[in-house]
Every structure is written in C-alpha cells, then in structure tokens.
C-alpha cells in the first residue's frame, strides 16, 4: 500500500492505496466521487476524463499514486457557488446529452480542450474530442455546445483558471451542496 495525498475538487484527501489502483477507482471507490464513470477497459471511451492540474486526462490511464501531490477536478467540482460552469450550461442549452453517461467525461474533455484552444473551429472541436465516445447524440449538439461555451470560458480564463476551484482545507467547502444547487437550477429551465 502506498500513501498518497491528492486534492480533489478543492478538498485534500490522504489515503493508503494499492499501487495498482487506478485514479478512477480511487475517485469512485475511496472518495465516492461516482460522478466520474467507467465506460471501457482500454482508454478509448473517455467517460472517466478528469482534469489533472488543469489538463484533461483519462482517469483510467492514471494510477492513483501518480496523482499524489496533484490537483484533480471532476465533474462534481466544476460548478462553483451554485453556478454551472459555462460548459455545463452549454451542454444543457444545446441538448448535448441524452443518456448522460459520457457527459461527465465529455464536459471535462471540453474544459481541457478549451484550455488549450480557447476559440476552436468546428473541425478542431471534433478532433479535440476524438478520444471521447458518445453513443446517443451523433456529436452534433456536443460540437455546438462546445462552440457556444468557448467565448464564456475564454472570458473566465482571462481572470484565472476556470477549472481549478480554489484550494481549501477539507470540510470547509461543501462542493456537494453547491453542485446540487447548480443541478437544481437546471430543473425546469427552458
């Protein structure tokens, strides 16, 4: 077992893990961060995408021990202060999801993509999301959502990193609550 210390969605966790534990397993099984999901065993589907120090990674391709000392942002930490992230808003507005299983990974991959290329073309969006599979949407509305979100994300980035919540000690920041409030703000929106 190895000792690791990882900051996930603004909260620092210290745990003993088996060296073979994947980051996605650590998130789901140790931390209960089940918003991040597993869709394949070969790193093809991208459903488990999270941000590691602000860059998108497939958390099935990272060992938990490799995340030691780093910052992880999952779909659950993206909304802040009850406000949806622009990418989340755009996915909702453009009907960019149906069953929603790929959505956490797709949204996090979008954050990574827009971090590297703040104003992508349609072609660049399609290429940038090539590593994330969706079986429901045919991607068209996902592409539209990414293009819709880009300007607002760029504006946020002008301030500071849009995808890394401020570091706070465990217990002081209740992301679950803010996330739920953000989710509730969608219910009934039109």
């Amino acid at each position: 077992m190895s000792q690791i210390s990882v900051e996930v969605d603004g909260v620092t966790y210290s745990d003993m893990v088996e060296p073979r534990t994947l980051l996605v397993q650590y998130l789901r099984e140790n931390l209960g961060k089940v918003g991040t999901v597993i869709g394949c065993d070969t790193s093809n589907c991208g459903s488990c995408t999270v941000l590691l120090d602000g860059r998108s990674v497939k958390s099935c391709s990272v060992l938990a021990v490799q995340a030691d000392g780093h910052k992880v942002t999952t779909i659950e930490g993206l909304a802040t202060d009850g406000q949806l992230h622009p990418v989340q808003k755009a996915f909702h507005n453009q009907h960019a999801l149906q069953c929603g299983f790929c959505t956490p990974g797709m949204i996090m991959a979008t954050c990574g993509l827009l971090g590297e290329n703040p104003s992508p073309t349609e072609e660049e969006v399609r290429e940038g999301l090539e590593g994330n599979l969706c079986r429901c949407t045919g991607y068209q509305n996902i592409v539209k959502a990414v293009l819709e979100a880009a300007p607002e994300v760029a504006q946020m980035s002008a301030g500071e990193s849009p995808v890394e919540p401020a570091t706070q000690p465990a217990g002081q920041r209740a992301h679950t609550t803010t996330g739920e409030a953000a989710a509730a703000s969608v219910g009934g929106a039109s």
């Binding site: 089940v34 918003g35 659950e76 993206l78 299983f101 953000a182």
Partner: peptide
C-alpha cells in the same frame, strides 16, 4: 424545452 433530467447528468449526480 431544455431537459429536466440534465441537471443531475451534467453535474455528476446521476444514479447509475
């Protein structure tokens, strides 16, 4: 209408 079910799906609070 934008979908009611999206709220949980885009914030990682889905019940799989």
């Amino acid at each position: 209408r934008r979908r009611k079910e999206d709220g949980r799906l885009i914030t990682g609070r889905t019940k799989w």
